[in-house]
């Protein structure tokens, strides 16, 4: 933990040398530091005239506290010792106050869990409990453990680290950037080191998942639905800081869903998937059944169920091949 009193005695140059990532802090706060490396905090602000300081609402004391906070967050973020290996849900109650139908639910990285239940049954609340790392202090009274332990509250309050990444059906890209620029920007915000390599890998993987190919210089806003989903999944797999991924139904069009899941699992993510598609649901190891705001039961995917899977997948493939033929302008009859 670095304190602001220590930073006050360092020059801007020293701060930059010790913590290279502070460069982005200065940039985003509109502080021009080129040529000011030899100045310490107080003399740096004295070099800016008072009128300009007031115009731009710069408050040296507040800024140095923010800088110290930022450095501490980044140090913690860069510390690899913080890996999440498992997530545990301890039961609470449903909307009627009835205890939930399980004792303890542990999910480990690389597992896929399906979540099923009608709309409004409490899926969002479950997600909310996980994201907020509930400590019996949410309406359900559930408790969430990380790595078998009560997690520290920084998961709750830190802006830079969130437990859950969400991929949902109706999301769009809204930025005016090419695919490459966009992934690059995300990589930059994550302080990734071998950026060029990661960006290329993500675009390649996304192209692998998507039915139709796209180029690095394609504008993200002109990607098709399938291509967008493929890019979102590949990007999340490699660049999201969140160890848990919630997928809200992957539409069966323009994307290889099975490979998408495999990609996330390979990246050591915990995958929770809200779906009513039997093929996807059966690809999960277990499924959570939600009713009336609570988890009614947890079903283990059995061998018997899996035996239907190959049949369902066959149907799925057949349907997909018809879709492809339709798209390519072919006749549907051989």
């Amino acid at each position: 933990m670095i304190k602001k009193e220590i930073l006050e005695h360092r020059t801007i140059g020293e701060i930059l040398k010790d913590y290279p990532f502070t460069d982005s802090f200065f940039k985003n706060n509109g502080l021009e530091i080129a040529g000011a490396e030899s100045l310490n905090w107080a003399s740096y602000f004295e070099s800016i005239d008072e009128e300009e300081r007031e115009d731009r609402a710069l408050e040296p004391d507040q800024l140095i506290s923010q800088l110290a906070e930022f450095i501490n967050q980044m140090l913690e973020f860069l510390d690899e010792g913080q890996q999440v290996h498992s997530l545990t849900i301890l039961p609470g109650t449903d909307k009627s106050g009835q205890p939930e139908g399980f004792d303890e639910f542990v999910v480990r990285t690389g597992e896929v869990i399906s979540i099923v239940g009608p709309t409004g049954s409490g899926k969002s609340r479950l997600l909310g409990d996980i994201e907020w790392v509930a400590r019996k202090d949410t309406p359900t009274g559930r408790e969430i453990l990380i790595n078998d332990d009560v997690p520290d509250t920084s998961w709750r309050f830190s802006g830079a680290k969130k437990l859950v990444a969400q991929l949902s059906q109706n999301m769009n890209f809204v930025m005016d950037l090419s695919v490459e620029e966009f992934v690059e920007l995300h990589a930059e915000s994550r302080m990734v080191e071998n950026r060029g390599e990661v960006v290329k890998r993500i675009i390649d993987e996304a192209n692998d998942l998507a039915g139709e190919q796209f180029k690095p210089d394609t504008p993200i806003t002109s990607l098709s639905g399938g291509q967008s989903r493929a890019l979102m999944i590949a990007d999340t797999a490699f660049l999201s800081q969140s160890p848990i991924i919630l997928i809200d139904e992957i539409e069966n069009a323009g994307i290889d869903r099975k490979r998408a899941l495999e990609l996330l699992i390979r990246q050591e993510k915990i995958v929770l998937m809200a779906t009513h598609d039997p093929v996807l649901a059966l690809s999960g190891d277990r499924r959570i059944v939600i009713k009336n705001g609570g988890i009614a039961k947890i079903i283990e995917t059995t061998e018997e169920e899996r035996s239907i899977l190959s049949h369902l997948e066959e149907l799925d493939r057949t349907l997909l091949s018809y879709r492809t033929r339709l798209r390519q302008g072919e006749s549907l009859i051989d």
């Binding site: 930022f70 999301m171 999340t236 800081q241």
Partner: peptide, 16 residues
């Protein structure tokens, strides 16, 4: 309405 990546970039800019 935006992608996970855009949410993360935006939040990290706010955090900055």
């Amino acid at each position: 309405i935006v992608s996970q990546a855009e949410r993360e970039v935006f939040a990290s800019r706010v955090n900055m």
